[in-house]
Design a binder for these strands. Structure first.
Length: 761
RNA sequence: GCCCAGGUGGCGUAAUUGGUAAACGCGCUACCUUGAGGUGGUAGUGCCGAAAGGCGUGGAGGUUCAAGUCCUCUCCUGGGCACCA
């Protein structure tokens, strides 16, 4: 008779079995078709995992187990994205070395993951802070440097005064640091910048073919922000200067009644302006504001450059020139021709400064650009990637600064440039990295001339390692190359990539690096992630984000201890659509808890028959098909409910054929691998292969069809799905409930076999 | 302002893609079991109505034998971008 389901004992047993047999090791040399399933690897934070993290991991676990059952050679690895500010801040707060903090946190994460029964191939574990790993992060940087894609700049960048480091545009939330919420400042620092803009067009174009959620693609398109237009030149009267503008509307050129320069525009300083003092004070005031503050201003502001007139190249008209901060230096040419009749902002400004608004007949863009000698061009909102961080816990940038030879690459045979030990790794706040204080490390010799030189002391941003880690899983222990070409050709691309949150940053950086690696022949595909599944977060019961701050964090280990791993896995998949954000609901866990208990009771009672139970055939085959299809399309919630429907039917019949039970346990296995494995062993059946669908049994012998009279449902009839219209109408007339609505012979009959009968009278 | 998703019971949600709306689960109600509560089972559970029946997928129109699904307008929610020329 059925015994209590001892999930603690059984789950431990199977987890040990899988570990001992290296059951999930991926082979690099296989004739089987490959599937590479990847999770966005976690940041091993000090808070540990909460129940939101494993949601994606459960999905990839189900997907990868299912593909393995379908005969694929599956790569499903896990690793750690462990450089960056949070780890460093955690270490500072707890007064330990970041490396020690990372090790401790990783051990904690692994312990938590171990209880859930995942099928990771741990032999391929990677860690971005491992010198054997970041050697190749540095190597990629050097290749970019050699190709001119990594360059030094002194342009003012975003500086977070709290994190004491420069940031990229992608690291901002409006005008505050995405990490700590502090308002960023502009600061001029010597910076390494990566020329991501070179790839803007390809990143945009190649999005189309990707199997990604549309809104993620859209977010990337927005971020890249491509606009096509023309550059036109306006000469300035009585001077050698001219103003170049970018416009998407050259057809409105005749309506240009004034021009505007951004406050940062160099011409503002160069021109002979009569009201110099007024202009200068406006420029100073503008530069003190962030772009967001400028945008938030209710009123347009600006100052006319007295004594300066620009000449409209279309009609040779002289028009005034302003400096105004509604024009951004960072976009286009930092100068505009203002057409108040066709642009709301120009209109607003024109009204305030009493400038003419001229309605015009639009010209042909092509002709006018040609006529005034303009050039067609493309502009992007995307900016080059500010790549230097003035912090300790990151990959050292492998560059040596020589007074004679300038910036020189560290020779590749000297990689990795190890992150040195430092007495104090707190940020200095001066704009220099803590590494700058280690003189014996900083002072070195120039690889080119052998003279005295200094190492670059800035480190890479948190996003460096994650921009290529998926390649390393294909060949994690290679000391000669970041990935072996043959292995890369076999495994690439990532077939399914699963995660959340990084809609723009990580995905755009990784795509950029990947395309670069493609260009230098290091990888064979133009995109890294063929398919992307984005998950919805799990909120706390109170509807807020789970956070230590609110004290509402649920530890997956607690759930596993209380309910078991299989229940936890099933519950997270049953909560709702994978991409939905849903609140944690402990009451609902008991629903899947009952399901698992009932599966156990069925599997350990005497319901198994040697021959199939006919009454279950159709539903079983439908279930096998639906669960398989649903896993493929990441509709795990409906897969679980379908299995529940089947279990309800099995309980109703109080028996099931052994072969049928085998099919049921097989499709349950990816979701609830422990109990499925145990019950298969109990029954002495093999569930290692995904069952084939017996398509002949998919359609039931008889179906219940709705019957409508004049479009309103009046009853139902049961008959074969192949029944003729005549038979169906006869059956309907035979039913007194339906017949009472039939006042005469139907004037029209609509019959869709197996679905509906509609009688119009 | 522009661009993407979405609005279905008390709740999470489902709907064979134009064919019986609410499957599956939670919760709730009643009864049985359980010798005193977080057990298991049976039945019920969209709304109005005693019933017959009527109404019902944010709202208003429309197409159709038939609309949650398609079309037009509109309101609301979430997300992305935003003085980007």
């Amino acid at each position: 008779m059925a015994s209590e389901y001892d999930y603690k004992k059984i789950e431990k047993k199977w987890q040990d079995t899988w570990a001992a047999s290296s059951a999930f090791k991926a082979s690099d040399d296989s004739s089987k078709p490959k599937t590479y399933v990847l999770d966005m690897f976690p940041y091993p934070s000090g808070e540990g995992l909460h129940v939101g993290h494993p949601k994606g991991y459960i999905a990839t676990d189900i997907y990868s187990r299912h593909m393995r059952m379908r005969g694929h050679n599956v790569l499903h690895p896990m690793g750690w994205d462990a450089f960056g500010l949070p780890a460093e801040n955690f270490a500072l707060k707890n007064k330990i070395h970041p490396r020690a903090a990372v090790e401790q946190n990783i051990a904690n994460f692994k312990e938590q993951l171990a209880h859930i029964g995942f099928d990771y191939d741990w032999s391929r574990e990677v860690n971005t802070t491992d010198p054997a790993f970041y050697k190749w992060t540095q190597w990629i940087f050097l290749q970019m440097f050699k190709k001119g894609l990594a360059y030094q700049s002194n342009e003012p960048i975003n500086w977070c005064p709290s994190c004491m480091t420069g940031l990229a545009n992608e690291d901002l939330d409006g005008d505050v640091c995405e990490r700590c919420g502090t308002k960023v400042e502009k600061k001029s620092l010597p910076q390494w910048v990566l020329k991501i803009t070179n790839y803007a067009d390809r990143m945009l174009q190649d999005l189309d073919a990707l199997q990604w959620p549309e809104y993620i693609k859209e977010a990337q398109r927005n971020w890249i922000g491509k606009s096509e237009g023309a550059e036109l030149e306006f000469s300035i009267s009585n001077s050698q200067f001219s103003i170049k503008v970018f416009t998407t509307r050259p057809d409105t050129l005749f309506g240009a009644t004034y021009m505007v320069l951004a406050p940062e525009h160099p011409l503002v300083a160069q021109l002979q302006i009569e009201n110099r003092a007024e202009v200068d004070s406006y420029v100073v005031a503008s530069k003190a504001k962030t772009e967001i503050e400028r945008g938030a201003a209710k009123d347009k502001t600006g100052v006319e450059l007295k004594g300066i007139k620009a000449i409209n190249p279309a009609n040779k008209e002289e028009i005034p020139v302003f400096v105004a901060d509604y024009v951004l230096w960072g976009y286009g040419t930092g100068a505009i021709m203002a057409v108040p009749a066709h642009d709301e902002r120009d209109f607003e400004f024109a009204k305030k400064f009493n400038l003419p608004v001229r309605e015009i007949e639009l010209e042909d863009s092509k002709k006018i650009v040609e006529k005034v000698g303009g050039t067609w061009t493309v502009n992007y909102k995307l900016k080059d990637w500010v790549f230097s961080r003035q912090r300790y816990w990151g990959e050292p940038i492998p560059i040596i600064h020589c007074p004679k030879d300038g910036a020189v690459a560290v020779p590749e045979d000297q990689l990795p440039v190890l992150l040195p030990e430092v007495a104090s790794y707190e940020p200095s706040g001066t704009g220099e990295s803590p590494l700058a204080t280690i003189t014996e490390w900083v002072n070195t010799t120039c690889p080119t001339c052998g003279g005295p030189a200094k190492r670059e002391t800035n480190t890479m941003p948190q996003w460096a390692g994650s921009s290529w880690y998926y390649l390393r899983f294909m060949d994690p222990h290679n000391t000669e190359a970041l990935v072996d070409t043959k292995k890369e050709k076999y495994w690439a691309p990532v077939d399914v990539y699963v995660g959340g949150d990084h809609a723009v940053r990580h995905l755009i950086y990784a795509r950029f690096w990947h395309k670069f690696l493609y260009d230098i022949g290091a990888v064979s595909t133009i995109e890294p992630f063929a398919r992307l599944e984005f998950l919805g977060f799990i909120l706390a019961e109170d509807g807020r984000k789970m956070s230590k701050r609110y004290g509402n964090v649920i530890d997956p280990t607690d759930v596993v201890v209380e309910h078991g791993a299989d229940v936890f896995r099933l519950y997270e998949m049953f909560m709702g659509p994978f991409e939905n954000t849903t609140a944690w609901n402990p009451a609902s866990i008991s629903g899947v808890g009952r399901f698992v208990e009932r599966v156990w009771r069925v599997g350990t009672s005497d319901v198994l028959r040697t021959s199939d139970v006919l009454a279950l055939d159709t539903l079983l085959e439908q279930t096998v098909k639906k669960v398989g299809d649903d896993i493929e399309s990441f509709k795990f919630n409906t897969a679980v409910s379908q299995m529940m429907i089947l279990l309800n039917a099995i309980e109703k019949e109080k028996m099931i054929g052994k072969g049928q039970w085998q099919k049921f346990l097989s499709i349950l296995l990816p979701f609830a691998p422990h109990i499925a494995s145990e019950l298969a062993q109990v029954a002495g059946i093999d569930i290692s292969a995904w069952p084939a669908v017996d398509t002949g049994k998919l359609v039931a012998d008889t179906v219940v069809m709705g019957v409508q009279v004049n479009g309103k449902l009046r009853g139902s009839i049961e008959l074969a799905p192949t029944a003729s219209e005549k038979e169906a109408v006869a059956a309907a007339k035979n039913d007194p409930k339906i017949a009472k609505w039939l006042t005469g012979e139907p004037t029209k009959v609509v019959y869709v076999a197996g679905k509906i009968l509609n009688l119009v009278v």
